[in-house]
Amino acid sequence: MVSLTIDGRPVKVKKGTTILEACEFLGIDIPTFCHLKQLKAEGSCRMCVVEVEGARNLQISCATPCAEGMQVHTRTERVVSFRRLVIELLLANHDTNCFSCPATGRCKLYQYAMEYGVEHSRFAKYKPHHPKDESSEFFNYDPSKCILCRRCVRVCNNLQANHTLSLKNRGPDTWVGLPFDKLFKDSNCVSCGNCVSVCPTGALTAKAGKSYRIWEVTKTRTTCPYCGVGCQMDLLVKDGQVVGVEPAEGGANPGILCVKGKWAYHFVNHPDRLTTPLIRRDGELQPATWDEALDYVTQGIQKIKEESGPDAIAGFASARATNEENYLFMKMMRAAVGTNNVDHCARL
């Protein structure tokens, strides 16, 4: 263990803990752009700098390990003025048309500019922007909103391990692009959307992103309904409708999702959803009340049970439904119908 003080508060942490992690533990807020906690520190955005007594320069808290006796200050005048400079440099080349940006409200550049009182940049715009790429079915890429934090590049290469996005060129010409300047739709992109999920600004945004503002939605932690991996995710809900999905960190998923988990939520609100019980009358399925339908079901089961015994009835449970529902279905077949003819689609 290592003992240190942060903003005058003593704290003991495991060896190897970064200053940023120690701050998180104490509940001290440190601004970051490039930090992705699932991956090794990148240390490129310089927004997380703190002052360490005795050190000549400001230290990046995401990549500096805590040391014995260290005295850290997270919000000195020197720190604040440095962070302002970082924001100004990023703003210089940023398209600040925030009214029409889907990221308004969740954009970290916007949030920090407000917090640090930066209303405009002293620096001139210094490079032209690469054209937008709106070729993906699911998201848009607007390089004029990119702050080169590389979160998208790292999630694509190191977590999704798909190697679609990379930094191109050097120095002031650096930008995030695809091999041979391809469009997303012509590349090896698998539309997992993890780059969109981690983008701190409006550079990579869901096509449906303009349908809500972040303050209008509630988040509900749940488990993906598709394959057996069991990824954890948050449903974004506005006015009783699912309007988006964000990955969460779970035992099975390191903060990433696939194309189905991230984007294929439209079925929830789809107009084809069944909304009323149906009973076949005169050869056609026709709407019925729950009472009618449930009586019809039980009378049908009872009639066949009386005529042919309980084993003339079989029940298929569902690998899509919950444990509790499957348990109850199994119990119904065995305890209420009286047959062991219960199975599900594990084999199919």
Binding site: V297, G300, I301, I304, E307, S308, D311, A312, I313, A314, G315, F316, A317, S318, A319, R320, A321, E325, F329, M333, N341, H344, C345
Partner: peptide
Amino acid sequence: VRCLYIMGE
């Protein structure tokens, strides 16, 4: 088997 009850399949 004369009756099937299928839940979510």
